[in-house]
């Protein structure tokens, strides 16, 4: 392993989003906050999903996970498409970095960005409502694995896309709908049976449900099962991404 090279690429990817933190960290926190203000104001009095948990409290883990999902994806995918389009990706491809090191650097940078945004939302949300922490390990595992899943999808999307609008399509037609329809704003038990069934095919549902368990100790699905789903999803995606990188798909034509 070229650890020092891996670290450099990771560090460069961190710098890349840190230098524009207003857009990459602060903006998603503000967006989540807006959702929180609007939905909790409108629905607080009317909805109680779990006993003794206010709707505002219920909403926060979902919003955190939604932002984790979107930012993990955005980090790796936008970095790759930008370096591909400007052409500076060659400076990485010319180096002795292996495909595994390449993957890990982009992956961990995505995870860091997602966790920073998640924590940011958590800190701001604390100003609104006291959140219990039932199981911190679950919180960490779900946040980490979910951002690993989305970081990998972002790498795949970044490699596959040839133009910004390809990537925008990926974002608008896959990531956004799946993250909105995964139980951020509701429990799937409140859905008709058909939609409940459909939700169970949405991997993002398990991320949010398991993450919520970490706070409240209640969930729609056994959190261990959710954890397994997310872990398997990551494993499959990692294998796919590593293979794309190994053969140089669209990167070393």
């Amino acid at each position: 392993m070229n650890f020092s090279g891996l670290y450099t690429l990771f560090y460069k990817e961190i710098l890349r989003f840190a230098k524009v933190a207003l857009q990459t960290v602060l903006a998603p926190v503000v967006t989540a906050l807006l959702y929180l203000l609007v939905f909790s104001h409108v629905l607080e009095e009317h909805v109680e999903v779990y006993d003794n948990i206010s709707y505002t409290a219920f909403l926060i883990p979902g919003l955190m996970m939604m932002s984790i999902i979107q930012n993990a994806f955005a980090n790796s995918s936008s970095s790759l498409i930008q370096s591909k389009i400007t052409g500076n990706i060659i400076f990485v491809l010319l180096t002795p970095l292996s495909y595994l090191e390449f993957y890990l650097a982009f992956l961990f940078a995505s995870i860091v960005r997602a966790l920073v945004v998640g924590i940011g939302i958590f800190l701001v949300a604390m100003g609104f409502v006291e959140l219990p922490v039932h199981n911190a390990l679950y919180l960490f595992l779900f946040a980490f694995l979910s951002s690993a899943v989305l970081g990998s999808i972002g790498i795949i999307a970044g490699i596959w896309s040839e133009r910004f609008d390809h990537l925008a399509g990926f974002q608008n037609f896959i990531i956004m709908p799946l993250s909105f329809l995964s139980g951020v704003f509701y429990s799937i038990h409140s859905l008709p049976p058909f939609w409940q069934l459909l939700s169970k095919f949405n991997p993002f549902f398990y991320m949010i449900d398991g993450f919520r368990y970490g706070f409240f100790g209640v969930s729609d699905i056994n959190p261990l099962y959710s954890l397994a789903v997310v872990f398997v999803a990551w494993t499959l995606l990692a294998v796919l991404t590593l293979n794309m990188l190994r053969v140089g798909y669209k990167l070393r034509n």
């Binding site: 070229n2 020092s4 090279g5 450099t8 690429l9 560090y11 460069k12 180096t95 002795p96 970095l97």
Partner: peptide, 11 residues
Amino acid sequence: EIQAGYFGQRK
């Protein structure tokens, strides 16, 4: 510095 780092020579 970043380019040197990829080759393990940042320091």
